[in-house]
Structure formats: C-alpha cells, structure tokens
C-alpha cells in the first residue's frame, strides 16, 4: 500500500508538472485558476500543521508536539533556516519528554 502511494503519488505529481508545458498559456491568465493555485497550498499546509500537531489517529490531544511547534514559530520569526526550524522543534519536544514534562 505504501509503494502504491509512493508510485501513484509520484506519477501524478510528475504529470502535473509536464501538463504545464503542453497547456496554452491563457490558463495562467485565468484569474480563478491563479487564485485557487495560490490559496490551495496555504489551506492544505495549515491543515497539515494543525493535524500533525494535535491528532493521534482521530483523537485530538495536547502533547510535546505543541511545544515543538511553538519553538518552530519562534525560530521562523527569528528567520532561522529550514533545518534549524525543524531541529529546534524536535529538540524541544524530545527535551520535554526526557524531563518527563511532556508525553
């Protein structure tokens, strides 16, 4: 099942890229298409942030991941590069768990 997701996901993502080289440029001038293309990543990424922070299966919980997310936001405000943001979040969550504060 994971291989199916990996291969079908990859094929679709490639075809999306390729399609752009065959479609007429007027598609780009369509205001509705441009708006959706701009807003879709924002809505999806925000949803992924929320779900990956609070969900365990179908249950919502508050655990060390939230502290990790807060640390990541601070790193972003301080203009830290991507890897630093991710590592800061991981270290914060790991440290809280190691001290027994978070779960």
């Amino acid at each position: 099942m994971i291989w199916f997701a990996v291969l079908a996901g990859s094929l679709g993502c490639y075809l999306e890229k390729l399609l752009g080289y065959f479609l007429p440029r007027s598609v780009l001038e369509n205001e509705g298409v441009r708006r959706v293309a701009g807003l879709l990543p924002v809505a999806l990424l925000a949803a992924l942030v929320a779900v990956q922070t609070f969900a365990v299966g179908q249950t919502l919980v508050i655990d060390a991941r939230l502290a990790g997310l807060a640390a990541a936001v601070i790193a972003l405000v301080l203009r830290a590069p991507f890897l630093v943001v991710v590592v800061v979040a991981a270290v914060t969550a790991a440290a809280l768990r190691a001290t027994g504060i978070g779960t």
Binding site: L45, V49, Q52, A64, L69, L76, V86, A94
Partner: peptide, 12 residues
C-alpha cells in the same frame, strides 16, 4: 522528537 519535526516542517 521527530514527530514534532513534522508539523515544524509544514509550518516552515
């Protein structure tokens, strides 16, 4: 803390 790295990657 790799589970906390996932939402951090998305917010970045």
């Amino acid at each position: 803390g790799l589970d906390a790295a996932i939402p951090a990657a998305f917010i970045a």
